[in-house]
Design a binder for these strands. Structure first.
Length: 645
DNA sequence: TTAGGGTTAG
């Protein structure tokens, strides 16, 4: 939340302006002392009409005209001026105009409170409201609505409750807008009993009120409660459907989100651009390329503007679903691009191992006058890291402070550690961490540990492992990696200790899960999954493949399995990693030569990686797989990651 | 003669 006082900006010094002897508005000139009511109201109408058409840079000019006309105390004119400043985000100017108004009425207070809210100065808005009440100016329904908005965004629950009490006293509590803001206030503050009470007292069937409730519930992860409100509403409009879809997406319920979207279509409710952005986000997570492509053509056919948000969502969808060419095509067709557009494109290219193109994109962005932000540098440094561009990476890292005035944060340092470690300069990466004097996070240490494992530097690996065990923020993925490193060097006790630590910390290992889209439907597989209706055929395919793979020289790399179990059991456990099941299902349910696209939630293990390379070779298929870190394009026995991931 | 609705990416 932003708070505190507004920053100062230049304001036309009203007191220094002399009143002219003629009053000029637009092209008309009136003689002085012509105070007839009709002329005044004509002048006012003209100025108000000018204000309504005014651009940001014209504010001082038109304000000067208002002062010259002697209209700077006219509440109607000042009201329009304040609204204009607020809409154009000139809140400093607005507050100075307000301060020069001798006796502001409730309209002017409300206009400035609204201005503070839309600029994010919630505390200022609440203070101004208090000032108004202290001046014995009675709040009306508009003032109360505005200050409740401020209380909601500013999470000022106590102040909000006081305003609620005032609304009750003033007999305004049944006003629909006020109720809506009260729901928003209580919902944002997690006071669902109060929010629900206000909602239940409202007339049934109000889609807007239901949307507010759904959004509040979803923000707190209360998906079932949100769903309950949604299902209980008979007539749902586009925004309400969208809020439900978005709520599910934000809570990781992608399949349910797409189900709701399909239901929306069955009920003939038209999606708008916001709906489509939410659906695209679900597609991105699931790797649902077919549906994503459908959304893309829907946008084209229905002339929906491909603005930066829609375009960015499309780029993310294509690149995260494994179709980087599709992402590039969307990017090149976009008429307007901002930093986020470039960030998405750079990220996509980097994830697909196209580091040089990612760097070119970064340069093109700067050539076009767009300033890279902190996120841009994370993406570009990642590209350098995946492409082994160590020197260039360093150059870009240093340019952050030297040329762009951006202070590197822990994620940037993490990128440099990854950059060095990946290329085998592990000791250098370690001393870089020491030099930064910043407590390393689990991502940084994880990158280093991963490199220790790949470059077989177990001595340093152990030192890093100790640091990781003592690291507060390590997640299940990092612990799994650590446990893997111990298991790989036969240190079963340590491996077990890490597993126990993970349990203690309440971060059990996330179960491996792979998704594949076939005929517009997402199929989900877990380790050794037997839920799929085609399970017999899937496992038969797996058995069929095993001897062929062995003939091709595949031998299971059993050390990647964590538990200290017998060789045959290890082999068996490896054989049913979720990605293998997804691939076998893809093989039996698509035509020969069809590219298979898999999305996996964890990092692919060594063994599956070698096996998939061979499957791609034997079956003459392209297999594109997204794991937790990047994309792997398997083709003809090789992988685009160059066996480093 | 002054004003008000809920849903979007990174």
């Amino acid at each position: 939340m932003q708070s505190g006082l507004c920053h100062s900006s230049t304001l036309l010094a009203a007191n220094n302006m002399s009143c002219s002897t003629t009053v000029a508005i637009g092209n008309s000139v009136f003689p002085p002392n012509s105070n007839s009511k009709s002329r005044n109201s004509q002048n006012r109408r003209e100025v108000i009409s000018l204000l309504q058409k005014c651009k940001h840079y014209q504010i001082p000019q038109i304000h000067a005209k208002i002062i010259r006309n002697g209209q700077d105390q006219d509440p109607f004119v000042v009201f329009e001026l304040l609204r204009l400043c607020s809409n154009l985000k000139s809140i400093d100017y607005a507050s100075k105009v307000f301060r020069r108004t001798q006796s502001p009425n409730v309209y002017l207070y409300t206009a400035l409170i609204d201005g503070f809210v839309s600029s994010g100065y919630y505390l200022d808005a609440i203070r101004l409201y208090c000032q108004m009440v202290n001046e014995f100016i009675f709040p009306d329904k508009y003032a109360i609505t505005s200050v409740l908005k401020a209380c909601g965004f500013g999470l000022a629950l106590e102040e909000g409750r006081e305003v609620h009490a005032q609304a009750l006293k003033l007999g305004l509590s049944s006003n629909r807008s006020i109720r809506m803001k009260l729901m928003g206030l209580y919902g944002k503050c997690g006071e669902f009993e109060s929010a629900r009470q206000v909602f239940d007292e409202m007339p049934e069937g109000d889609a807007v009120a239901a949307t507010v409730m759904i959004t509040c519930y979803a923000e707190y992860g209360l998906v079932e409660e949100a769903s309950g409100v949604f299902d209980g509403l008979r007539e749902k409009d586009t925004v309400c459907w969208t809020a439900m879809i978005d709520g599910l997406v934000k809570n990781g319920e992608m399949n349910r989100a797409l189900e709701v979207f399909r239901d929306m279509q069955r009920k003939n409710v038209w999606p708008n651009e916001v709906t489509l952005v939410c659906v695209l986000s679900a597609c991105s997570h699931l790797g649902a390329l077919e549906l994503g492509r459908w959304v893309c053509s829907y946008i084209d056919k229905n002339n929906i503007e491909c603005n930066c948000i829609v375009g960015g969502a499309l780029i993310n969808m294509y690149s995260r679903c494994g179709d980087i060419d599709g992402a590039v095509e969307v990017f090149s067709r976009m008429k307007k691009r901002d930093v986020s557009t470039y960030n998405s494109m750079i990220e996509g290219l980097a994830m697909h191992g196209k580091s040089t193109m990612a760097i070119e994109m970064f340069r093109e962005m700067m050539k076009r006058g767009l300033k890279p932000n902190s996120i841009t540098f994370v993406k570009v440094l990642n590209a350098c890291s995946h492409g082994g561009l160590v020197e260039l990476g360093f150059e870009i890292f240093h340019s952050m402070t030297n040329s762009h005035g951006i202070q590197p944060q822990i994620e940037h340092y993490g990128c440099v550690v990854d950059l060095l470690a990946r290329s085998g300069r592990i000791e250098e990466a370690y001393s870089f961490i020491e030099r930064t004097k910043m407590a390393p996070d689990h991502i940084m240490l994880g990158a280093l540990l991963s490199a220790c494992k790949i470059h077989r530097n177990l001595e340093l690996g152990e030192r890093v492992a100790e640091m990781l065990v003592n690291c507060d923020d390590a997640d299940s993925g990092t612990f799994a990696l650590l446990s893997n490193v111990y298991a790989a060097s036969g240190k079963w006790k340590e491996a077990a200790r890490v597993r126990a630590l993970t349990k203690e910390a309440g971060t059990p290992k996330e179960p491996g899960c792979s998704l594949i889209e076939v005929n517009n439907e997402i199929h989900e597989f877990l380790l050794g999954d037997i839920r799929h209706p085609q399970k017999e055929n899937i496992y038969r395919k797996l058995e069929e493949l095993n001897p062929v793979l062995k003939r091709e020289g595949y031998s299971p790399a059993t050390e990647v399995v964590l538990h200290d179990i017998g060789e045959r059991q290890k082999e068996w456990a490896l054989a049913i990693h979720s990605e293998r099941l997804a691939i076998c299902y893809g093989l039996i349910s698509t035509k020969p030569c069809t590219t298979l696209r898999i999305v996996k939630n964890l990092r692919v293990c060594n063994d599956c990686h070698s096996m998939i390379k061979l499957i791609a070779k034997i079956t003459k298929r392209k297999i594109i797989m997204r794991d937790r870190h990047r994309f792997h394009h398997f083709e003809n026995g090789a992988c685009s990651c160059g066996d480093y991931w």
